[in-house]
Design a protein around this nucleic acid. Structure first.
Lengths: 192, 192
DNA sequence: ACTTATCCGGGACGCCTGTCCCGCTTAGTT
DNA sequence: AACTAAGCGGGACAGGCGTCCCGGATAAGT
């Protein structure tokens, strides 16, 4: 009947609802980035200036909210991985991406928690972003292995563990850079 | 008056009390080893066949119980460190100790949590075991550095971070060994 | 045997968490 | 302006945690 082409003229999302959802998402980004997945829902609601009920309305569970934040960031990681893969030689692209991942995880605890599986297991939830990330990581890694700059027996789980180790030193920038060097050196084939 | 030489004839600890304390400690060892510092006090009490009040009586706080368990294990680590330092050349002793620490932390989550500071910050509580451990670690590390087998700019916090990374792969024995190799290789001086 | 300080069980308490729900408000449509 | 469904606030609820406390039990000393 109306200008809507759909069969149902269901009322569209209200403007204030959309605004609040955006604000919650915005504050969730900041809060998860600052304190990781362990930050309480009430705290995010308080920062966004809404009630906990409003948060739950837009994101029925805490995991849903965390996923919305983390997957968005991971999509960004995937794009960066593709950029690096396009720009850099296979022999070094992986190392560049590794350093990028560590710095990103240290700056944004949501990324770190998502990668290391702290809080929620995002791997279980099938998502294009997650699988794309896995594919990008595997691609960079295997190409470095074929180029002979990374030992052949490591897998992506090893890489995640190394990242977890590096972000344990996120309190000190120089130490972090040192950890990246140590990890990358260790990944090179032995007696190279 | 009695055979006691002390000034106060305070009643000694009751036999059942000592028995229960030993049982709690025993089960706490097993539980913390299996699941880390996050295991609930109630669970330890249940396993020991006592009530939570009994646990609290002997160990007024959860941190006290965890400390009793963890410090005992750390004393063992210190003895092992001294053994390794006595038996092995400075150039390799550190690496042996590192591998030992990782395997120990993977087998006993209480050790891992104590080392990486998960749960409680045992470093804050001044204890001879903790300071002895720090001294042993620093000694092995600096001697390896003087021998030229470990890069000069790493400190003990870096080592702990690497251990944290290695125990993230404690689900797979082969992967763990691989992680130890990677970490040790990375610790060697560059272009060496 | 009797006394008494020690000890124990089990529940209460307070705190924190994520999730759900009800009554009121408000934006969008007619 | 009126109507209605979407949306909101704030509190209720359930579960889990560490800690504390009281009435009854019991081991140790006399």
């Amino acid at each position: 009947m109306s200008t809507d082409a759909g069969a149902k003229a269901a009322r569209p999302q209200r403007a204030d609802g959309r605004r609040n959802q955006a604000r919650v998402l915005e504050e969730a980004f900041a809060a998860f980035a600052a304190h990781g997945a362990a930050v309480p829902i009430r705290e995010i609601a308080r920062r966004a200036g809404v009630s906990t009920g409003t948060v739950t309305r837009h994101f029925p569970t805490k995991e849903a909210l965390f996923r919305a934040v983390a997957l968005h960031r991971i999509e960004h990681l995937v794009r960066s991985a593709e950029d690096i893969a396009a720009r850099e030689a296979p022999a070094t692209a992986f190392f560049t991406f590794f350093a990028f991942l560590v710095r990103q995880s240290a700056a944004d605890h949501a990324v770190g928690d998502a990668l290391t599986g702290a809080g929620f297991d995002l791997q279980a939830a099938a998502s294009t972003a997650i699988s794309d990330f896995g594919a990008a990581m595997t691609g960079l890694l295997s190409r470095a292995q074929q180029a002979g700059t990374v030992r052949a027996d490591v897998d992506t789980a090893d890489i995640k563990a190394l990242i977890a180790g590096c972000i344990a030193r996120d309190d000190d920038g120089a130490a972090q850079q040192r950890m990246i060097e140590i990890a990358c050196d260790g990944l090179r084939p032995r007696r190279g």
